[in-house]
Amino acid sequence: MKKKVTLWYEFFKGVWDINPAFKQILGMCPTLAVTVSAINGIAMALATTFVLVFSSLIISLVRKLIPSQVRIAAYIVIIASFVTIVDMVMKAQFQELSKALGPFIPLIVVNCIILGRAEAFASKNTPFRAILDALGNGAGFLLALFVIGGIREILGSRTLLGFQVLPNSYDPMIVMILPAGAFLTFGLLMGFANAYALRKNRKVAETNIFKYKLEREKLKATEV
């Protein structure tokens, strides 16, 4: 069964089908807290992706060595080492971003996406697939944070990635850079994503019903 999943889907499912933010609803803390601007969202997502990829790789490599009773502790040790690396690099190289993201970089240790992927995927799959899955989930998280951060930045402070996109005559909505704006944006985006998925599923179901009816009519015709 597992062999049938293509390598492309292993990567792509994280971007849309099981998008960490919109579908798995994991990593809510950074999703809501740091997306005041698009650049913060990108930085947060890249830091998370880095930790996710390397911890998935290591966990996948040592998955047969770790006794299952102590696996969470072992995962946390592995994840924490990479988080420390990210935190130190960001403090040394990108001080402004590090200050803006504040405690959320060290908090990647307890980010549910990383532990969730480690538990659900990396501990059961080969290293190559684990890396692809981690990259896909990281890309999905990046997409989510960039979209939320972009919308909040445009509406809340007229800019996108630091460049002014809306004219000065536009009155910035202060609510969008407050926590309430994060909940509002995230909730609406999740609603749209779910509505889209629902509509797609309904179309599939409708075609199945159509096929069934066609089949039944054929049977009736042959009976008569």
Binding site: D171, M173, I174, V175, M176, L178, A180
Partner: peptide
């Protein structure tokens, strides 16, 4: 309530 949060000055 949204306007109160969005445009607190106005």
């Amino acid at each position: 309530a949204f306007l109160q949060a969005a445009f607190p000055v106005g």
